[in-house]
Design a protein around this nucleic acid. Sequence first.
DNA 1: CCGTCAGGTTACTCGAGAGTAGGATTTCGG
DNA 2: CCGAAATCCTACTCTCGAGTAACCTGACGG
Lengths: 209, 209
Amino acid sequence: MTITGAKPSGRLPKSERRTQVLSSALEVFVDAGYHATGMDDIAERAGVSKPVLYQHFTSKLDLYLALLDAGIDELHASYAAGLRSTSDNKVRVQRTVQAYFEFVEDPQGAYRLVFESDLINEPAVRERVDQADLAVAQAIAHIITEDTGLSPQQALLLGSGMLGMSQVAARRWLRHARTDISREEAAELIASLGWRGISGFPLSHPPEE
Amino acid sequence: MTITGAKPSGRLPKSERRTQVLSSALEVFVDAGYHATGMDDIAERAGVSKPVLYQHFTSKLDLYLALLDAGIDELHASYAAGLRSTSDNKVRVQRTVQAYFEFVEDPQGAYRLVFESDLINEPAVRERVDQADLAVAQAIAHIITEDTGLSPQQALLLGSGMLGMSQVAARRWLRHARTDISREEAAELIASLGWRGISGFPLSHPPEE
DNA sequence: CCGTCAGGTTACTCGAGAGTAGGATTTCGG
DNA sequence: CCGAAATCCTACTCTCGAGTAACCTGACGG
């Protein structure tokens, strides 16, 4: 009782406490959003008291941004690995879509901070999310440029379309179709939709009939 | 001066005042989001004083929901007209995508309430947005079902993918590509991506190579 | 044993902002 | 001209929640 460092007890070294606070905060933010959660809620969840939070983070926003960054890094790592792992563009598209589905399925739920943040109007948040989206859209745009004759602007637009497709479909799947369709099948379906769409473009110029 | 009912002056009949308050509120919500705007801001923008707002709406949320509903109705009217106007599924897809681009381009900016609300965690808001998305996804799923051999669940997933594609691409176009690509061209591009994706599916069963 | 310090706590402050009480003023039918 | 109904305003109240001041405590090297 007094010996083992059981989860909800005693003092912790700074770095461990920080990690624990982060994970508690993530839980709360994930299921209530930024505005509806108070620092008190986070403190309570962490089994600690409010000033402790401020020993690790200068403000509520600061704490939130740390989690947002971690979430974005997670997503990036995942899709970047997929892109590096092959040079077959079709497979690359599949892996990118997979990455979104996997990210969304992560039980920690960090995707909610990245895709459904209720703090989008905070410049610091918008900037990060925009930047993250842009990076993915550009990656896809690059693939598109290799396989079609579209201009960079057009390719980027399509890239962001693909991104939106993956993001929204992954979220719908998570909430409404997870029992009917396996993650792999769902991702494969969406990837096909996208890949067929891309490869249908001629090697120069816009569509016409 | 004292005669003409110039915009920023005098008393108004209830119904006109209501409309005016709505439009002022929309302006403010659109460029600051729900949380960052105070009832005082809205009152000021409307050239009126806070209690007046409460003569027309029971709460800030009530006011916001009225605007959200109007926005959703606008979007619905637009894409529904497109669907009714033809039975050619390819054209239907084009018109649906067009509807998103037009909606996003509306200078009033109501799309921000529907696509980028910072009040998503309020159940009343989430419910409406989810419902709106579902309606569109189902409309597209219906088209998909006619043109492929996919199951209803699969079609709905693809439908939400198409929706996400249109939504996200339209937003990127508005903010970053509007000067390079015309609205029509952008929508056409995205519609092609989607339509080629759809029509690439065989008339029964999932993809393989 | 004792100083000291990292780690923690209780109990505040203080500003912001939603919503309201109560009193003015305008307008208009009679 | 007059009263009463509609419209609007000034000036609050009250809650909620971020951030803080000031104090406590257990551990550990000397």
